[in-house]
């Protein structure tokens, strides 16, 4: 019966990011969310548990403000969570996140399988999973769209450019999953209530053996804006005619 760790990130919902008048990003009215593909990662972990038994531990690294994320993650089925939090764990770059996760998992958490998302919704670096596997010295199968456990090994369908590779790896192993792997369940009221009763292990920077320096420095983060006409027409005959004439004028109807 496998012990599964699933790694998730609590991120800014990009749909709420505005562009200020100077072209700078405006984060004032943002909301946070569970990183999209981490919902698939959690669902994959919980489904494996439903099939094979075992346990699911959800792990996240973030600032103390990410508590809401724990409840969201736990309402999706994991047994317990590990909250690695510190005021300084903000805007981490992937090498730092992977190093922190490595130190937290080593010695503290039992695992046969670790599941990560393909990439996080904010950075989409697609690094934390493979880096973590290397640091722990376990096999890694990334971009997995179908996953099962077969005795002592995993069988994973990996999505590659030219098709699918069916992979096998000995446990313990790490996989990163693509969104095609499942349709995450939508937690109900009962799930949310149960989530608040589940165990949360808190780990802070003081409990960790190292300080984690970034290898990548962000020099700037600017809005990728686009100037467009933003003219709309009604759906009546005159509107459609005016629309087609506008296209003709642009010279794109040849």
């Amino acid at each position: 019966m496998p012990d599964i760790i699933v790694c998730f990130k609590w991120v800014i919902d990009e749909a709420y990011i505005r562009t200020g008048s100077s072209g700078a990003l405006d984060f004032r009215s943002v909301n946070y969310k569970l990183s999209d593909y981490d919902r698939n990662a959690i669902e994959a972990a919980v489904r494996l548990k439903e099939e094979c038994g075992g346990t699911v531990t959800a792990v996240t690294v973030g600032t103390p403000g990410a508590t809401k994320g724990l409840k969201d993650a736990l309402s999706r089925g994991p047994d317990k969570a590990c909250f690695v939090n510190d005021q300084s764990f903000d805007n981490l770059e992937p090498s730092q996140t992977a190093a922190i996760l490595t130190d937290v998992i080593k010695g503290r958490l039992e695992y046969d399988l670790i599941i990560c998302g393909e990439g996080s919704s904010d950075l989409y670096a697609q690094q934390v999973g493979p880096r973590l596997a290397e640091a722990l010295g376990i096999p890694c199968v990334s971009f997995v769209q179908k996953l099962s456990i077969d005795g002592n090994r995993i069988i994973a369908e990996r999505k590659v450019e030219e098709g699918i590779n069916i992979m096998a790896a000995q446990l313990p192993a790490l996989v990163t999953v693509v969104p095609d792997i499942n349709n995450p369940r939508i937690p109900g009221v009962k799930d949310t209530l149960m989530a608040s009763k589940k165990e949360v292990i808190s780990v802070t920077a003081d409990d960790l053996p190292a300080t984690y320096e970034p290898a990548l420095q962000t020099v700037s983060m600017t809005a990728a804006s686009m100037e467009r006409n933003c003219i709309t027409f009604p759906a009546d005959q005159a509107g459609i005619q005016a629309f087609v004439e506008a296209l003709a004028k642009e010279g794109v109807l040849r």
């Binding site: 090498s95 990996r158 290898a215």
Partner: peptide, 21 residues
């Protein structure tokens, strides 16, 4: 590519360096 991104991240971990994806 799918394999390139995976190999890059794992090499970066081994070489203890940063990677711009």
């Amino acid at each position: 590519t799918v394999r390139g991104k995976d190999i890059a991240a794992r090499l970066a971990a081994r070489l203890k360096t940063g990677l711009c994806s």
